[in-house]
Design a protein around this nucleic acid. Structure first.
Lengths: 229, 229
DNA sequence: CTGATATCTTACCCGCAAGTAAGTTATTCG
DNA sequence: CGAATAACTTACTTGCGGGTAAGATATCAG
């Protein structure tokens, strides 16, 4: 069940009538704002820009949000919730640490191609006020910690080779977060393609697997690569 | 021989005398600007901020640069040159495709911890004028293409497993570029630590592996971490 | 139908930062 | 030394964008 908003009608229609429906209008503002923030960045997006795309005037926006930053913060919250849900599902349904990491890569790569997901990692933290920054940093740290925990789990159960979990998590997160920089919805690469190869490359590495006999075979672990793809 | 600027005296001393020395003064401006751009972002850095840190006044800056954007563009140029040199060395001195990729990861991770290197990937392209954007995009595309060529080379010579070189390059570049987001010069992780594990994780993958022959035994020795830090 | 209220607009204020004009001070070279 | 000019400052203009005041208009409950 995808959240309703993703299937919802074009947001600018929300303001075609003056009917009293604050909830959907507020969300319409949020959606258009997120779009613009991703197109032009938060700073270069003026409140006028947002209003214009919704066919209303700037002051009208202040009926739904106290100020510009509240819109930004709400984008972060929405996106963080998305990512959090992904992590929950994986924690519940997956097996070995490596499988969890792989499932995470796959799911996360997909979120990075969706509005609010992209916001979390693409928008500039520096635009936040100190208190809001603390909140957002909290969300991000939580995500990082949970990913890191998957890696540690994998090291413990033998599915992942010895390494510094912190750095491993950074490498994975980096490759994934960068998606939201270069990804274009109309481009040649589908989210699924990206997700699939990333899941494979990051877990298995670039190096060709050689048919050479395994010195340590059976000694150390018996994990099966290729849990999902 | 590392570039002089990196070892040069604190840039604010350049303006302590009014002696006529445009070259070093111009570079001092560039260095401080780069620092500030990385600390606060380009947009949030005012010309006054730059001037203040150099103990001069804003209009003085306009003796060395036509406008704010020219400073930004120069940062991009400087950083791109650094990265280009790395790529040249690797092209010249390394063996298999995989070795080149690994050497690249190692060297590039180091550049991402250095002022001008960070600028190239951390600063926001959106702050550039259309013509400048074209130029910078050119630099970036060139870097991407050369990395991609290494990967293709590796696939051809059998050192890298079958995959889409474009996506592989994106994954590597993402992990590396993200460094300049989270890296803190005073933090617990040294550039070398980061570089070393990234080179290993990205080429060999996370998954625990049965030990093979010494494919990568000598690689770290002939990649050259010198000349950067 | 009618007042009460939510919704939205027009017109404005204010502060900030890029950039400039014009004058002042130091350096350098003949 | 003493012009010529580079280097720098003070004081200003300009435009833009966030936010608000106050009024106009539509919606809804009774």
């Amino acid at each position: 069940m995808p959240p309703l908003s993703i299937v919802s009608p074009p947001h600018w229609k929300a303001f075609s009538s003056r009917r009293r429906d604050p909830a959907t209008k507020r969300e319409a503002v949020l959606q258009t704002a997120a779009e613009l923030f991703l197109e032009k960045s938060y700073t270069r997006t003026s409140m006028n820009d947002v209003a214009e795309r919704l066919n209303i005037t700037k002051p009208a926006l202040y009926h739904y949000f106290q100020n510009k930053e509240e819109i930004l913060l709400e984008c972060y919250r929405w996106g963080s919730r998305l990512i959090g849900e992904i992590l929950n599902e994986i924690s519940a349904h997956c097996g070995s640490g490596l499988e969890k990491v792989e499932a995470f890569i796959y799911a996360y790569a997909n979120v990075m191609t969706v509005n609010f997901g992209r916001c979390v990692m693409r928008l500039d933290e520096g635009d936040l006020s100190p208190t809001a920054l603390v909140e957002v940093r909290g969300y991000k740290r939580k995500i990082d910690r949970r990913l890191r925990a998957f890696v540690q789990e994998g090291i413990a159960d033998g599915s992942i080779g010895a390494c510094d979990p912190k750095l491993a998590a950074f490498a994975i997160a980096g490759a994934l977060n960068w998606i939201c920089i270069w990804y274009e919805p109309e481009g040649p690469l589908s989210p699924e393609q990206i997700a699939a190869q990333f899941a494979h490359t990051l877990t298995q590495g670039l190096a060709a697997r050689h048919r050479r006999g395994a010195l340590w075979a059976g000694v150390r672990n018996n994990s099966k690569p290729g849990g999902l793809s």
